[in-house]
């Protein structure tokens, strides 16, 4: 029997499954993701055929809609199914490149709605308005007093963010977001409601 993998976030059982609310948020924590870090990482990932953002705090999408985020000169966060990379990696084949268990270290929350920057301004001190924080930009900063990675992305055709933050505090963060989005008629939705266009790949076991 496959063991059960469990998000740290308790999502209401029927979170607003009808039409998309003006501001919507879904728990993507069970969706695949991966990280690599170390001085040899950029070289090794490029050798695996990935095209990488040239500078830290930028992200790009590949042709499969997977998101490749560069967090520093030698650290990358890969949102989507990169299982092939995982099996290609070893200490011997990837010198100075080390995998990070991002699937389990970080919760992944996706926010969609044009009021998303305004909502984030209640919990985050970085200017995330679209004309100052373009699609693909990354801010590694403090959100509701937690360290978090914020990535700008259009989600379901609207402004949106990927929010990655320590998994142990993810319920707290979820609750903060629920509270912050109330004044914008925001609500949690099921994962599928936001997954359609943002990440096409199938749900995978970590």
């Amino acid at each position: 029997m496959q063991p059960r993998r469990q998000s740290f976030i308790a999502v209401p059982t029927d979170p607003c499954s009808g039409s998309l609310p003006a501001l919507a948020m879904a728990d993507f924590s069970l969706r695949p993701r991966l990280g690599f870090k170390g001085a040899g990482t950029a070289d090794w990932l490029a050798a695996q055929g990935l095209s990488l953002p040239p500078e830290p705090n930028q992200s790009v999408k590949d042709d499969q809609g997977r998101l490749i985020a560069r967090l520093s000169w030698g650290e990358f966060l890969l949102l989507g199914d990169f299982a092939a990379l995982q099996s290609a990696w070893s200490f011997e084949t990837a010198p100075l490149c080390f995998p990070l268990p991002r699937l389990h270290s970080h919760a992944w929350i996706v926010i969609s709605g044009d009021a998303a920057p305004k909502m984030m301004a209640k919990i985050c001190g970085v200017d995330l308005r679209a004309h100052k924080f373009a699609q693909g930009r990354i801010a590694q900063t403090s959100v509701a007093r937690l360290n978090a990675i914020v990535i700008a992305d259009r989600i379901r055709g609207r402004l949106g963010f990927h929010l990655l933050s320590d998994i142990s505090t993810s319920q707290y963060l979820w609750d903060c977001l629920c509270d912050a989005m109330l004044e914008f008629d925001g609500a949690p939705v099921v994962l599928e409601a936001l997954a359609k266009e943002s990440h096409g790949q199938t749900d995978a076991q970590g």
Binding site: P56, N57, S72, G125, V126, A139, Q140, T141, S142
Partner: peptide, 10 residues
């Protein structure tokens, strides 16, 4: 040098 200008509280 990595993240640009930020509030000193970070």
């Amino acid at each position: 040098p990595l993240n640009g200008p930020r509030n000193i509280s970070e």
